[in-house]
Design a protein around this nucleic acid. Structure first.
Length: 516
DNA sequence: GAGTTTGAAACT
DNA sequence: CAGTTTCAAACTC
């Protein structure tokens, strides 16, 4: 506490690193103070905040054991003013500064928290400590050596960032500091949800700087939030059951590389874990969807979060309409869209199948995993739809319109959308042929002629325009239900009236398209 | 409190 | 720069 001030009276640093104590470091780096942003410094500054306020007037020099962001870094003149073993709080309680337990480093390496924080050891449990005034020369030498290795060694590892969560608010219960780790963490087994992780410890999210594996310390992470809210038990229980890979949460930089590799089939270095993790994630998710008892002890919110996370790391948004519009609505809407798509296709292309088209269909279907009989059925069904108009059934017959569309006139974009939809919405109705159709999509597009491209574009325009209108209707009617929940019951009992209305409009517009 | 795990730092 | 070792904090039992 009352150790001499080694830096005092020594004047400005004159001969670079060797002469640097932490004071000199601060001076040498002029523009930016090195220590004030240090995580530990921030932590301790919080602990000291109240005490400092009380002491501020009595001790104008600022007895900050750790620099506070509000404290002018220039006032931090020496280790002495930073070091302070005991902190007295308003309520009279005394809180001790963190004490290291170093044994072999003499507290002269960054292993030592005190040394790394730029303070003398004081009341620590360390052995053979040289991080004190009695060993000042050794300490300075160690500082110099450390700076030689890494000039930023004593700078804050956490960079302040203007980044805010998407809606510019602090999520409830989340005390995440805005900023990111300069160097990034490299965690492998802790999911960045333990204090082993420097990011987690600093109360910040992992960033693109991190090279961590199976990171769950990302924006929107339920676990990270839960941990910070103190739901440690639930989260740990969940993580045990959900396994390391259950989320496939990956920091941005890695995510970019690794998700890409999922599609390209490439295997960038160091991606195996996450690739398998993602594969596992999807499998686990599918399983848990179809069998909710699969993960019995997973908190509901975590399971829901997992579903969302699989889609996107940053989209935690859930529409209010989600509680109103059901799966049935979505299915029906999709079925209608498929009909419109087919009709648009037949209108635009005439009702003939060109030789090219047939060849392409054959190519696609021959290479699919479906049986020849199924192939035949589909072609027949397709012809029926194209020539017969409104014969599409929304039931589960072999001539499922979705299948039909995948086999033929859908543009690559639409096909992709449908495949995606299939994955998400129709899991329980998934058919092997459809899955096969999805996987064949690149093959179709690769052989698509310019004529088809134009056709697809026009078809897509028609479908999407109708889709947009239909969605608008749904949103409007849904919003009304949200605002007037009392009437929603009636509406629900009336068998999804809003959707029917929306689809009615949809049909009307469709007919209008025909007319034009 | 002892033993283990973890990841940063240091070293090769 | 990658791999290995050392180290001390965090964690578990």
């Amino acid at each position: 506490m009352d150790k001499p001030e080694p830096g005092s009276g020594s004047g400005p640093a004159k001969t670079a690193a060797r002469q640097l104590d932490f004071t000199a470091i601060c001076r040498a780096s002029a523009a930016t103070a090195i220590l004030p942003d240090h995580p530990q410094a921030q932590l301790q500054s919080k602990l000291l905040a109240l005490a400092l306020k009380r002491q501020a007037e009595a001790e104008p020099k600022g007895n900050a054991a750790r620099p506070d962001p509000e404290v002018d870094p220039k006032k931090i003149e020496s280790p002495k003013v930073r070091q302070q073993s005991n902190v007295e709080f308003k309520d009279g309680t005394i809180k001790k500064q963190k004490q290291c337990n170093c044994k072999n480093s003499r507290c002269l390496k960054l292993y030592c928290e005190c040394f790394a924080a730029g303070i003398y050891c004081n009341g620590c449990n360390c052995t053979n400590c040289h991080n004190n005034v009695e060993h000042e020369s050794a300490r300075r030498e160690a500082v110099g050596a450390t700076l030689e290795r890494n000039p930023n060694a004593f700078r804050s590892k956490i960079a302040k960032s203007p980044h805010r969560s998407q809606d510019n608010r602090i999520e409830a219960g989340e005390v995440t500091t805005v900023g990111k780790h300069n160097k990034g963490c490299n965690c492998k087994k802790s999911w960045c949800l333990k204090k082993y992780c420097e990011c987690f410890q600093a109360n910040i999210m992992c960033s693109e700087n991190c090279r961590c594996i199976d990171c769950k310390n990302c924006e929107g992470s339920e676990e990270a939030r839960a941990l910070r809210q103190g739901e440690h038990t639930n989260v740990m229980a969940f993580m045990q059951h959900g396994s390391t890979q259950a989320f496939g949460y990956i920091p941005q930089a890695i995510k970019k590389r690794k998700i890409q590799s999922l599609f390209t089939g490439e295997a960038p270095a160091n991606t195996l874990d996450n690739r398998s993790a993602q594969k596992y994630s999807q499998e686990t998710f599918l399983t848990s969807l179809s069998n909710s008892s699969h993960l019995p002890s997973i908190p509901l919110h975590a399971a829901a979060a997992r579903a969302t996370m699989l889609r996107s790391s940053d989209s935690m948004y859930r529409s209010q309409l989600a509680a109103i519009r059901g799966l049935k609505d979505a299915k029906e809407l999709c079925s209608r869209l498929v009909v419109v798509s087919a009709e648009a296709s037949s209108k635009l292309a005439g009702k003939k199948l060109t030789a090219n088209e047939n060849a392409e269909i054959d190519q696609c279907e021959t290479s699919s995993t479906t049986s020849n009989q199924l192939h035949k059925d589909k072609v027949e069904s397709r012809v029926q739809v194209l020539s017969g108009g409104d014969k599409v059934q929304t039931g589960s017959s072999g001539s499922d319109p979705v299948d039909i569309q995948h086999e033929r006139a859908m543009s690559p974009g639409t096909l992709e959308l449908m495949c995606d939809e299939q994955d998400r919405t129709f899991l329980e109705a998934q058919s092997p042929s459809v899955v096969g159709g999805c996987s064949k999509q690149p093959k179709i597009s690769s052989s698509t002629t310019q004529g088809f491209t134009d056709l697809y574009a026009e078809q897509e325009r028609l479908v999407l325009t109708n889709f947009l209108n239909c969605l608008n209707r749904l949103v409007t009617s849904g919003s009304m239900q949200v605002m007037h929940p009392s009437s929603s019951q009636t509406v629900r009992e009336g068998q999804q009236e809003p959707l029917q209305n929306g689809i009615k409009d949809f049909k009307l517009q469709r007919n209008g398209d025909h007319l034009h």
